[in-house]
Design a protein around this nucleic acid. Structure first.
Lengths: 131, 131
DNA sequence: GAAGGATATAACCAACTCGTTATGAAACAA
DNA sequence: TTGTTTCATAACGAGTTGGTTATATCCTTC
């Protein structure tokens, strides 16, 4: 079995994944791609850094497996690869007892409340988050 | 409101957390601490690096909020702080649709099964993993 | 007070990261 | 062909990281 082409438990891949996620610009790029595929130019637009800098961030994200790229004429549309985030989720699963238990029931409740808030205030607030 | 002493949504903290997790030695230290508190000497024992190197890894983990340390005589027992991992969990939540959808329903099922397992296997198994 | 164990800090080095500017390469358009 | 757009790469510098060895600090014990 295990048809996934890459080993889920190789530490090196976790290294690269966590390292890639450690940069706010790269997390912002992922946030952008979560809303849909985009070309390098489109991705670079909102950032105050040069295009080569973005190209390198994309390279880091790609070699961590967090995004993939295809070729369409001169453009290189980027696509978020959710499967790689799965690696992080699986790793965190080993510590579930810790981060879940630390907050306990109270935290679950707060989460529920906040979820309710989010649903209500869906107009504007909270943007620029999740970066 | 918000009595939690640290801001859950400050990107800098995510930076430090992901960066701390990007090193395999540090993840191994966390895995060790998941089995119980330990002193610096105890933590350093299984690693092929010097004690100062471990001290610095611990400093990184501490300033990322992933561990805490107290003083007991000359010893500085380290304690895993699960709450900080919560930050990562919350961030991943924004992408749940992506990493969950990639595997689909089957994966949800596996999650349920594993949750059941965790409750049952609270004794020992699974060590040496999640590094 | 002197000795010893546990840990932190200082000083140093090699390697990597992230940014820059300048330039190259590929595909389209005229 | 010539020019234009999109993206990647090269070359460089400043700052950070992860390791080392040597030394300092703190606490206990004799």
């Amino acid at each position: 079995m295990k048809q996934t082409g890459y080993a889920l438990d190789e530490p090196e891949r976790l290294d690269a994944t966590f390292a890639a996620l450690a940069d706010p610009t790269r997390r912002a790029i992922l946030a952008r791609l979560a809303q849909g595929d985009a070309t390098v130019k489109e991705i670079a637009a909102p950032f105050p850094v040069s295009q080569p800098a973005i190209s390198r961030h994309l390279k880091v994200l790609e070699s961590a497996g967090l995004i993939s790229r295809e070729r369409v004429a001169q453009r290189r549309p980027c696509h978020l690869e959710g499967r790689q985030l799965r690696l992080v989720v699986d790793w965190l699963e080993n510590y579930r007892g810790y981060w879940a238990e630390a907050y306990g029931r109270l935290d679950e409740l707060l989460d529920e409340l906040q979820a309710g808030d989010d649903a209500r205030q869906s107009s504007g607030g909270r943007e620029g988050q999740g970066i």
